[in-house]
Design a protein around this nucleic acid. Structure first.
Lengths: 238, 238
DNA sequence: AATTTTATCAACCTAAAGATTTAGATAATT
DNA sequence: AATTATCTAAATCTTTAGGTTGATAAAATT
């Protein structure tokens, strides 16, 4: 999608501070040959400008307190254009970096960084690369790995309960986690409803629960993965 | 936790290829002042050596086909030591990088990279930083953002259904997603069981489902977040 | 060969869940 | 003042869900 030879990179600036906006514009005009196609202090207006001009790069300011910036990133991503977003922020907060990248930002630069970093970021991102300086990368991964740890932590001590299920019980539990009732499970597995109940009761005992909902909740929070034999389930009507 | 002044970094090497192992050992002895406290071609043995020597850094080889390496990372992380893992891999596969980092690796270097990169990586990671070269960082984020897109994609078109719930209905749904039955919900909210049923029926209609399980499944797969008034729920016994 | 595990099913029962209708009391809105 | 939304509740009913007992048969284990 990138720059054809001789064509200038088209950039849109969004920053709620009009002074910053002017400063960045000057910087880009002085230190690069990019074409600033627009600039605005309003996130909402910015989204409309992205639609209209479809720039290569959006330089997006993000402030901690108001999370307009993150919402704007999400809105722009939803347009599914070839526009890439570089965040320019005053905050190196791990969660903020994490969320911006999660929403699809391709670069993240701090306002306190040398102006050459900003040009670097735009250049890298325009070439399809991610630009995240080492310090911010470390911050990002602090958060990312912390989230991952929490996800796997619960699946640890007790997930043996799921391992005690037979393959048939796994098939039944799989259907339970799709909200299928006894009758439909019986039809899908081509066994009688009583047999299904027997399996379900055995599942309950093994998972140490008393009802469907808690069995499903247990399965979902302990990394349940369906077994092999699985015809697709379209409808879930009772 | 890091290196006290004058103390050498203690490093353990794990690589299933004995030749590589020797090569890396020599490299480290030549180009750094680190102390290689052990080296092994066996992932399982490696884990035991980590327990015994508690090195500052583990240099871990990862091969695509066998995923022993990833499991070894997980096993070492589970020890909860101050040992940091640097991956040395022949593959720049996005998913492999993603999973290694997700499991807690602090650095990732390709075998094809200059040997100085490896020393760089160890040095950075020892200082508590993340080391992920630009190319690999881009690969990582390809995968990370792709996963995030999929997660939010389903929550998009229809999540309005959850928005149509009243605050009381949200409280009831919150308890439903914890596997609480009618009687207990009534007790917790200090209302009659009939009232709970009324709320639940309204929830079903708004979420377009016919039973608890599907209501819970809908809530969980559409980013349901409980409202305000929530006394803690300890037991879930029927 | 004997035992245990797994998968199957019937028949019966209780308890819980879900559906429906009607209605009173506030609170918010028009 | 009138309407609508929300929360509450009773009464009644149908339908699932869940529990229990007992039994058959093949497969895997000991």
């Amino acid at each position: 999608m990138m720059r054809e030879y001789g064509k200038k990179l088209r950039i849109l600036l969004i920053d709620d501070n009009a002074n910053h906006l002017r400063g960045i514009k000057e910087l880009i005009n002085l230190e690069s040959d990019y074409n600033v196609v627009g600039s605005t202090t309003s996130a909402n207006l910015g989204i409309n400008l992205v639609k209209r001009y479809q720039p290569d790069i959006v330089l997006m300011d993000i402030n901690m307190p108001e999370k307009d910036g993150l919402q704007a990133i999400q809105a722009i991503q939803k347009l599914e254009l070839n526009t890439r977003i570089v965040v320019l922020s005053g905050y190196d907060d791990a969660d903020l970096i994490y969320r911006a990248m999660k929403l699809g930002a391709k670069g993240y630069v701090l306002k306190t960084m040398a102006s050459s970093k900003l040009i670097d970021a735009i250049e890298h991102v325009a070439q399809g690369k991610i630009f995240l300086p080492a310090i911010l990368s470390t911050r990002f991964f602090e958060h990312f790995q912390s989230v991952s740890r929490q996800e796997t932590a619960s699946k640890d001590g007790e997930e043996n309960l799921l391992n005690s299920l037979t393959s048939r019980e796994n098939e039944v539990l799989d259907l339970l986690t799709q909200g299928v009732n006894y009758k439909s499970i019986a039809q899908k597995l081509i066994i009688s409803e009583t047999t299904v109940k027997t399996h379900v009761n055995n599942i309950f005992q093994k998972l140490q629960v008393n009802d469907r909902t808690n069995a499903v909740l247990y399965a979902l929070t302990h990394g349940f993965k369906p077994s092999k034999t699985n015809a697709k389930v379209e409808a879930t009507a009772a």
